[in-house]
Design a protein around this nucleic acid. Structure first.
Length: 506
RNA sequence: GCCGCGUUGGUCAAGGGGUUAAGACGCCUCCCUUUCACGGAGGAAUCACGGGUUCGAAUCCCGUACGUGGUACCA
């Protein structure tokens, strides 16, 4: 019987969650759910110097908004906790010591200053960034170069030290990536990465292997920036837990911005969000806009992210989360990085607004309008309004532009737009029209149009020439749904009121 | 510098030895609509380059270029 699929998203809580991060979560989630497995969130907070208050909560808020709910996490619980690496600190040391004992790792006592010095000394034009590797470790202060009793003494004295992996010489480490196939690296080209830091915390390299093992992770997804250090992880698996227990790796392609790699600066520069939700840096107070606040629906956000790097091979582009779960497969994930296209992102949102029912939009739209100072006294009216305008809304705030006038009498009119064809006859028409409207018995679309047409014929004015002025009177400008439908929803007294009020300035 | 990974229209992409090289976004034209959308019909636009292998290459191989990542006691 095959093992139950278990995947993990392992963010470092150091700031906002950007597009690429959410997509990594998504692919994890879709893969897990497709296979009936578990989706785990593990917080990789081993770097205490980079602790950012609120960042962890923010990550979970984003997941909540996207509807990607973990089965296990520090806040959702689970049988393999704790799920914060800072709370697992004691676990890692024994594995690091085990590696030392088996001569796969060693103690290193070099100070940061000495490391810096080494890099300066060995720096040449051919080798601008020398690494702590097989070539230099003989020249450094570590348990490979020091006498055994000296090492014991240093350890006993509590000297600050790290544990480094001892990369073997002349070996080829290879593994099969689910997206890229066979990947090979020469061990002599990889440096002796620090496994356990001087403060006793593991680095990513040790922690990811130990925790993936302890948490029984079967498939590991991460960004392709991890590819170069993959051989370290593979070796660690071999030394510690056996290659046969190693999860299957999948290194996801990058998401690029307009000028290369996507950074939060791109957002400010090109006017589109980069983070899932608004993020305010607690130190600088700098706000980075999020997709949620920009007016994206979570359904659309998830949909567009899924298609950025994955394609089913059909012409379908609109997917619900359930369809994605059903259809997602890792071997249809692209190898190449994808440039994020904000125009297409907006198209997805527009499609989703059109696709969603009025009911499911109602609450969100109501909140937006209320936030803009509208008073919504009648939900039935709002329902009609949403149905009428949703096709012309791309982002959620567009509902305010497209429908705000239903709940607020215009105070300004785009008179200029009507002016060129405006004259006394038309003014008279509207004065009379207002009177007739006030007398209508059954206020409904057909009746309104009738009264309008008959009067126009009577006055010998083309109805078409009267529609634009009427629109501007009712909504303030050249926008909105069909004008008589607006009047019908506005109601008799409000319509008459608006015409008369506008006539004062026309 | 070295190492890894990648490269089909402007963007997302299908296609993986023989196709008129799908589709979508965006752009343009027209129809619908006397607002703007929605909808409909069209259009322009692509296999990074150079060598092979082959009867035949976008597809397989090798180079080059370009992009991107790594080269931290960061993840």
């Amino acid at each position: 019987m095959p093992k139950k699929v278990r995947v993990r998203f392992a963010p470092s809580p150091t700031g906002g969650l950007h597009l690429g991060g959410v997509r990594t979560v998504l692919y994890n989630y879709l893969f897990a759910k497709h296979h009936g497995g578990d989706f785990i969130v593990r917080i990789e907070d081993t770097d205490q110097t980079r602790f950012v208050p609120g960042a962890e909560q923010y990550i979970f808020d984003c997941l909540q908004w996207c509807g990607l709910i973990p089965d296990e996490s520090p806040v959702h619980g689970g049988a393999y906790g704790p799920y914060r690496q800072s709370e697992r600190k004691e676990i890692y040391r024994q594995f690091a010591e085990q590696l030392v004992k088996n001569e796969n790792a060693y103690y290193a006592f070099d100070t940061p200053e000495e490391l810096e010095q080494m890099r300066n000394n060995f720096k040449t034009e051919q080798n601008p960034s020398p690494q702590y590797d097989i070539h230099v470790r003989e020249k450094m202060k570590n348990s490979l170069t020091l006498a055994a009793d000296e090492v014991q003494k240093l350890l006993a004295d509590g000297a600050r030290h790290v544990i480094r992996i001892k990369m073997p010489q002349g070996e080829t480490v290879s593994f099969t990536d689910m997206i890229r196939g066979e990947i090979s690296n020469e061990t002599s080209l990889v440096d002796d990465k620090v496994l356990l830091k001087a403060d006793g915390m593991p680095t990513y390299h040790l922690a990811v292997v130990v925790d993936d093992y302890l948490m029984k992770i079967t498939h590991a997804f991460r960004g392709e920036e991890w590819l170069p250090s993959a051989p370290v992880h593979v070796l660690l698996w071999k030394y510690l837990f056996g290659l046969e227990n190693m999860p299957q790796w999948a290194h996801l392609p990058l998401i690029l911005g307009p000028g290369g790699k996507l950074s939060k600066r791109d957002g400010a520069k090109y006017g589109f969000p980069v983070f899932a939700m608004n993020w305010t840096d607690p130190k600088t107070n700098e706000l980075t806009e999020g997709f949620r606040e920009k007016g994206f629906l979570p359904e659309a956000f998830v949909n567009l992210l899924a298609l950025l790097g994955w394609n089913e091979g059909t012409e379908q582009e609109l997917y619900t989360k359930e369809e994605l779960i059903q259809k997602f497969s890792i071997d249809r994930v692209h190898k190449g990085g994808a440039k994020f296209d904000y125009e297409k992102a907006k198209w997805f949102n527009h499609e989703w607004i059109k696709k969603l029912t009025v009911d499911s939009l109602q609450l969100t739209v109501k909140e937006i309008l209320i936030a803009k100072g509208m008073e919504i006294s009648d939900d039935a009216v709002l329902t009609k309004v949403i149905g009428l305008v949703k096709d012309r809304c791309t982002l959620l705030p567009d509902f305010y532009e497209q429908a705000g006038f239903f709940f607020q009498t215009p105070t300004q009119w785009d008179v200029d737009a009507a002016k060129p064809k405006w004259n006394e006859d038309k003014k008279k028409f509207f004065e009379e029209f207002a009177l007739k409207l006030a007398g209508i018995g059954n206020w409904e679309l057909g009746e309104l149009e009738n009264v309008f047409k008959i009067l126009a014929t009577e006055k010998n004015i083309k109805p078409g020439e009267l529609q634009l002025p009427l629109r501007i009177m009712l909504v303030g400008g050249k926008f909105g749904p069909p004008v008589f439908q607006i009047a019908e929803i506005l109601g008799q007294s409000e319509t008459v009121f608006r015409i008369n009020k506008a006539l004062e300035v026309f």
